[in-house]
């Protein structure tokens, strides 16, 4: 009896010490999930979330001070991916997301003032002073920073057109037995 109790106690103490030591020596500096989350985000540091850059937003999401849905350019897909990563449940229906968008310049309105190109986080707007500007569709992240800078309302966000090359066959609907399948 005594032998059993003492050996168990000893074992517990030894393992506890080991764990304590491990937590000290093998301590990870910084939260690795922040980096993972930062990698998932658009990375344009557009600032629409209210944080200075995607890295800070990732930290805020992990802290719980910002919702996973705080990134407008990432939209629903990103919110869902972050929620899945962090194990959060998320009501995606509340996220206003009509799909990816890009900024488009109405050429007849543009006066070539260059205000929009200064705020573009990815330098996606080209055009010199007094020249009609244009948005490079591939480089635009859809952050819409430029929209309010435009004095003539020449800039608007338009949904990214779906092309044949980008179309994806929908996943088959799970309609058998009306049962959830997971």
């Amino acid at each position: 009896m005594l032998a059993a109790v003492s050996s168990l106690a000893l074992l517990g103490a030894a393992l506890g010490l080991l764990l304590g030591a491990a937590s000290r020596w093998l301590r990870v500096e910084g939260n690795p999930i922040v980096d993972e989350l930062t990698d998932m985000m658009p990375g344009s540091n557009c600032g629409q979330c209210g944080f200075p850059g995607c890295g800070k937003a990732a930290e805020a999401i992990i802290d719980g001070t910002a919702p996973p849905t705080c990134c407008p350019p990432g939209g629903k897909p990103l919110a869902a991916a972050i929620a899945a990563k962090l194990g959060l449940t998320l009501d995606l229906t509340t996220v206003a997301d009509e799909g990816p968008k890009v900024a488009v310049v109405a050429e007849e309105l543009c006066i070539g003032c260059c205000r929009c190109s200064k705020v573009c986080p990815t330098d996606a707007i080209i055009g010199a002073a007094k020249q009609i500007h244009n948005v490079m569709r591939d480089a635009c992240t859809g952050c819409s920073n430029c929209i309010e800078k435009c004095p003539t309302d020449a800039l608007a966000m338009r949904p990214t057109p779906i092309t044949l090359q980008h179309w994806v066959m929908p996943k088959p609907a799970l309609h058998y037995r009306g049962m959830p399948c997971a």
Binding site: P77, P159, M169
Partner: peptide, 13 residues
């Protein structure tokens, strides 16, 4: 989820 995969009831071969 992904707007690119939303569409009419498309059926593959």
């Amino acid at each position: 989820m992904n707007p690119l995969t939303q569409g009419a009831a498309t059926v593959a071969s």
